[in-house]
Structure formats: C-alpha cells, structure tokens
Design a protein around this nucleic acid. Structure first.
Lengths: 207, 207
DNA sequence: AGAAGTTTCAACCGCTCGGTTGATTAAGTC
DNA sequence: GACTTAATCAACCGAGCGGTTGAAACTTCT
C-alpha cells in the first residue's frame, strides 16, 4: 500500500490495536514526516525549509527526522529518489498526443508538491528525480506519433518534449507570472483543466 | 551608462585619475557586488546564497553589502526591481511571431542569471520582477498576430503566452532535465540557437 | 598641507538551525 | 508482570551565517 507520497505504509497488521488508534506507530510517523517534508520542500525549496517546520506540520518531534531519515538531507534524498512509479505508468500507450499532453498537465496539477520538487531540483542543478528511462520512453512516444503523421516531420522529438514538459508545468513553475497574466489563481483545478485544454489544442496544430 | 546588470555606473568623471585605476571607486564596487549577486542568487537561489560568496566573487569585503545595499535582502530587492529596461524594449513591433519567439529564447540564453532569478522568484512565490506592463504588451502582441491570422483563432492569447514563455525558458528552468534528455549541455549558445529554431518552427504550425 | 568626509576592511557578535544526547514512555516477549 | 527493545521527546550544543563595530586608508575640499 502506498500513501499520497508513494511510500510503503503500515505493511503488517498483526498487533491488536488497529493501526489508526495506536499511540506509537513508526510507519504512520514516517509517512507523516514524508508527507510534511514534500509539502515544505515543495513550497520553499531545500535551503529555505526548516526541519522544525517539517516536524511541526507532521505533528511530531523534530528529532524523529534524524531518527528515521538521518537528518534533513537524508529525508530529502528519500523523497527525491522515490516517486518514479507514479508518472512512468501513464506513458507509452497508443493514445493520441493531445490526450497525453492533457494528462501531463493534470498530473502536475495534482501532485503539486512533487512537481515543484522537480522544478527546484532542476534549478539548483541537481539531477532531478526522473529516471532517464521515463524520458526516453516519452521521446520514443513522440517519435512514434511523428511517424504516424500526428506531428510535423520537421520537429525534433527531443526538443519538442522539452518544450512540452516546460509548457505543461508552467502553472507550477511560473505560478506567479501566470497569476500576473490572467489575474486568476493558476493553482486551481479549473485553471489546470482549461490550460490542459489549450495545450491540447496547441499540439493538435502541430500536425 | 548602464553595465551588464542594468545599473548606473561611473556617472561623473571630474576627478583626475581615470576611473579604471582608482583605488577606491564606489560605483565600480556597487556594480561588482550587483554582478556577483546576480550570479550567486541566480545559481543557488536566495536562501542558499551566502553573502560571503557574493563578496568573494565581487572581490570586496562582505561588509560592503550592508554599506551599499543594507544587507542581503536589500541587495536582492535592488536586483529584483531593476531589470525592466532590458526585455521590455524588444516586444510589440510588427515582427512575425516566430522571430519574437526566437528572440525570447535568445534573450534567456544570454542574461542567464536574470532568467534564473525570475524562475526562482516564481517558485518561491514572490511576485517576479517583470512588470505587468510588459506582460500585457506581449499578450496584446499575440492577440494582434492572431487577428492577422498568424495564430489559430481557437487559442487563448493569455494561455498561449504562458506556454510560450515556459517553453522559451526551458533550457534555463529545466536545465537538468534538458541535459538528461539530449545528453548535451543546454547552456551553450549553440543549443539555444537550435532550440530557438525548433520553437520557431513550432509556432509556425500554429496558424 | 590639513581637515573633513567617504570608502574599505578585519574582527567580532548574536542568533538561527540542524543535529545530538539522555531520559521517558509505549510495545513486544517470555 | 518483569524485562527488553523500539519510539518519542525536551533540552542542549556547536557551526555557520548575516549583520555590526570601530578603526584605517583613501579622496576631496579649502
């Protein structure tokens, strides 16, 4: 079982009091910390995040961060090296490109914390937690769609993927500029919906 | 006269020794600090930047940051509220859209520090240092191009601008992902050139 | 040249923050 | 129920960082 952040949680259930009412529950604590950390790191970036804030949000003592993850950095790394499963799945099918792009946007719209983490990592020069596997798959997908005549032949799949990913993540990565632009809040599901629609429209013009 | 960062420098020249050989030169010092700060803030973001590093890079004593800018935050704000002149100019003409997009990419390719600063600001939730004026101008430009039949009628200029800006800045904001993608260094002028070409190609398909 | 003001610097200060320590409490074991 | 082990917490610690201080070095003015 995985929680929102993608971590194993409460695997074995053999003790009497049900997991939810136990006073001490390491799995739950771990999960809480991870969730809080994703939110904090996502919101402020690694350097500006305070371990105290993570602990407070998780409702636990800050020492537990060291206890479970070996400190701030360990916690961050755990977060960074672990979400692969989520996004990877949705790729590679024979769906039309526009649907894939739409899904892309909606994925970033939920999982905002993950997406922002990815953006932070990119800016700070870390190798972001997206395996090359996934990227290659997406490029191949684009190439296939191109061969199928769904994308103009003069476009380089690599470059196109880069542009599309950036565009899809724009409501996250350029949240403030987006807000300046339309006056509305780009973090709402409604905005994501409309934006996804527009991007889909855009790629439809690429054939 | 303005230096690379856009600040007034060496305004009056009435003292005997030429500015370049003076031992003490407040304008030069200010300019050096600003340049170093842009590089450091751009590279690591506000929180992770150390004033010591800025001073070292500028080759001056760190106290001068307080002396001239009232501390780290003052320095940052100075940097943030000041570059308008640069980008604003290049907009609004009657050029074809593809050329504008190309120029967009190339602008981010030079001025990397400024662009990264903008990206950091966006992520950290500050209102980024691009005045609404400029953005409105760009939207109007897109609308005009649309009316001229250069862009499909079903696209919303606001959304399109957001997507295009994100895409144009991708080699900056998604530098690491871009590197993973093509194996090559996305910070080189050559890459920017090719990427700009591709984006231009892309928008050409939007009509 | 000498005074006055400006610019620069080395040393220092206080605070914040991540991490550690050692005690306390709950859970599992026999 | 005693004993062992795991989980949690409050208090403390040292490093690192941004900022301040006070004096020295340079410029300008008269």
């Amino acid at each position: 079982m995985k929680n929102a952040v993608g971590y194993r949680v409460a695997v074995d259930q053999r003790r009497s009091p049900s997991a939810s009412e136990r006073k001490r529950d390491p799995e739950r604590t771990r999960a809480r910390i991870l969730e809080a950390a994703a939110a904090e790191f996502g919101a402020k970036g690694y350097a500006a995040t305070r371990t105290t804030d993570i602990a407070a949000r998780a409702g636990v003592n800050k020492q537990l961060i060291s206890y479970y993850f070996g400190g701030k950095e360990g916690l961050y790394k755990e977060l960074a090296t672990a979400w692969h499963a989520e996004g990877t799945a949705m790729a590679s099918a024979e769906q039309p490109l526009e649907d894939v792009v739409k899904a892309f946007v909606m994925t970033t719209a939920h999982n905002r914390d993950q997406g922002r983490l990815w953006a932070w990592a990119n800016l700070s020069g870390e190798t972001p937690p997206v395996d090359a596997e996934f990227l290659r798959g997406q490029v191949e997908f684009l190439r296939a769609r191109q061969q199928a005549g769904e994308i103009a032949a003069d476009l380089d799949p690599n470059m196109l993927l880069l542009a599309l990913m950036a565009a899809a993540a724009a409501p996250l990565t350029l949240e403030q500029t987006a807000r300046q632009l339309g006056g509305e809040d780009p973090s709402t599901p409604e905005f994501a919906e409309r934006y996804a629609e527009q991007l889909a429209l855009l790629v439809r013009h690429l054939r």
